[in-house]
Design a protein around this nucleic acid. Structure first.
Lengths: 339, 339
DNA sequence: CTGAAAGCGCTTACAG
DNA sequence: CTGAAAGCGCTTACAG
């Protein structure tokens, strides 16, 4: 079945194409009678505007691009969900791309989105992204850009983030409050701002409580996996590293650690208290349930889109866009691993 | 910065628009000298074809639509990943939508995709989808459609599936082989083909082994959640239901059950052997590790796109599309919960 | 080898 | 109230 065009409706009714177009768009200068005729014919012929033509005329596609480092992550798939749902509500469709934590891929994908003429871009950066010219390029083309969670401070666009430093501080302070003195930290990779900030928050909490920072208690994960958690836990047991608590930058890693500690017979929280990060749904399910920082993925996605939507509209009205940093509150969720 | 058009390049070089267009597309009837000139100018002016105009001319957008019931599911996010990666390789972009297991939303979203003039559609159905006219509509517009995992047998399009019945049979047979005699089943909701087939495979295995099917041993989950698993396990303990094995249609539900059984002091696999379904990454992580059926999500997504790609090309060549059912092999992964 | 012409399907400013 | 005209930016068949 071929799609119907305005031309066909016009021909059928003996009207001109502009009149049909205007009738369908309910322009005030078309007679009610004509409108009715056109509407009926459109219905009958199952008219559907050719979006390619509309895009070309209006210079917008009502489509945005989204790049995340990894789709298969509870946090990101939740963020995607928030973005997609919100976008749909506002009449926007979302093209999704995954950088796979690769800087090179991320650059290529931004090219793809620019070639596609998306109206705006939402991005959470790859861990390996160290240069930001590909992002500046988006801005140069006057395409609204909003970064969320994994951001680059140096890029002058709106950002939706949590205060990682504060959240990490809160987590560490909690461990101190329940009496822990030798607090280790499993941190994320070196480059991403999040891991840096979480590490700094951890360190600051120690300092503020007069606990001497000991770099030998900081373990750096190159990948945030279950096995990393297991392995570090194994190492701690094997080398009998003396500690009574760990603040771990990711629930998945934390659950790996908890699993290994259980196997090794280490009691949680009696011997080691643990706080994770993200409030992955499994953290409430495991035994002992995991204390953690709730990182609102769905909410972040939703708000990132909302901000982008605002900028999209500002642009349409030729108003200036002033980048905005939106910081969402995080909450410490206390569970059995710190009781 | 305004995007450069062919017109601008033509003007700059004193050439016509068609010549510039052909030079950029490396047509053989343009002189090498002109090509060089044009290529240089295009580079310098950062020319990028206006995709809206290209779409309108070529009548294709190199974009496909994807609808899944739920983005935040390990299986689906993996399938999405497979689709997006494969599509990118073939020069296609993917618009993603989530039906939220709602039939109504699914219908609306198909309208959105048709309005968008996507080149093809990939879909995994909502549990509540009971009527298929919205899917037939896609086919009526000659838009290639491929369903994966959650399919409707009645729709005449290509499908990528696993043999759920066979997989369930395999899982149940394994429980029988290790000596279990009173085998329960936690099944999924009533409507989806998958839950039906898995149930039938379970039943068939019992029959083939002369074990009498007992409907009181079948527990129906309305949602496949951790808590459902916990709750059914709790019920089994409380009512002291006599069984020595359970085949559970989802790893998440199975892990919920395992967690509850551990709390209740039921030994796995000594008292109850358990086989899950999907091979979620956590199933190898928990203790005891969970035997399960490996359901290749990434692979299914990849192959679904490949099939769609094939149909997209057949359509371009005006060749007829013969729907194809592609069945992927599943494997039983034996772990500690059945040893 | 180059370019004038037509057209993809729509929208909108303008004339009548 | 209706329609002829122009144009969005490109591609392609055709003339020269």
């Amino acid at each position: 079945m071929k799609p119907t065009t305005l031309k066909e409706i016009a021909k059928k009714l003996g009207l001109s194409i502009p009149t049909v177009s205007k009738a369908l768009k309910d322009y005030p200068d078309v007679s009610a009678k004509t409108k009715k005729l056109v509407l009926n014919a459109a219905e009958e012929l199952k008219y559907r505007p050719n979006s390619f033509a509309v895009n070309l005329r209006t210079k917008e596609s009502k489509t945005i691009g989204l790049i995340v480092p990894e789709i298969v992550h509870y946090f990101f798939s939740n963020a995607i969900k928030g973005i997609v749902n919100q976008a749909e509500k506002k009449g926007y469709l979302v093209i999704i791309l995954q950088s796979n934590e690769s800087f090179e891929l991320e650059k290529k994908q931004i090219e793809l989105l620019l070639n596609k003429n998306v109206d705006g871009v939402l991005i959470s950066l790859a861990n390996s992204t160290a240069d930001y010219s590909h992002l500046s390029k988006i801005l140069e083309y006057d395409i609204p850009l909003v970064m969320f969670d994994k951001i680059a401070k140096l890029v002058n666009c709106s950002k939706v983030i949590i205060d990682d430093r504060k959240a990490a501080y809160k987590a560490t302070q909690h461990l101190i409050d329940i009496g822990c003195k030798k607090i280790a930290h499993f941190r994320g990779p070196l480059l991403p701002q999040n891991s840096i900030d979480r590490f700094l928050g951890y360190k600051k909490a120690l300092e503020d409580n007069n606990i001497i920072y000991d770099s030998s208690l900081v373990f750096t994960c190159d990948e945030m996996t279950f096995d990393q958690g297991k392995n570090f836990a194994k190492k701690i047991c094997k080398e009998q590293i003396d500690l009574d608590a760990i603040f771990i930058s990711s629930d998945l890693v934390a659950i790996g650690a908890v699993t290994e500690f259980k196997i090794q017979g280490v009691l949680i929280p009696e011997q080691i208290s643990i706080v994770g990060f993200s409030n992955w749904f499994m953290s409430s399910a495991i035994t002992p349930s995991l204390s953690t920082i709730d990182q609102p993925g769905y909410e972040m996605g939703k708000i990132a889109f909302k901000r982008l939507y605002k900028e999209l509209n500002l642009k349409k009205e030729n108003k200036e866009i002033t980048p905005k940093i939106i910081e969402l509150e995080t909450e410490l969720v206390v569970r059995d691993s710190t009781k």
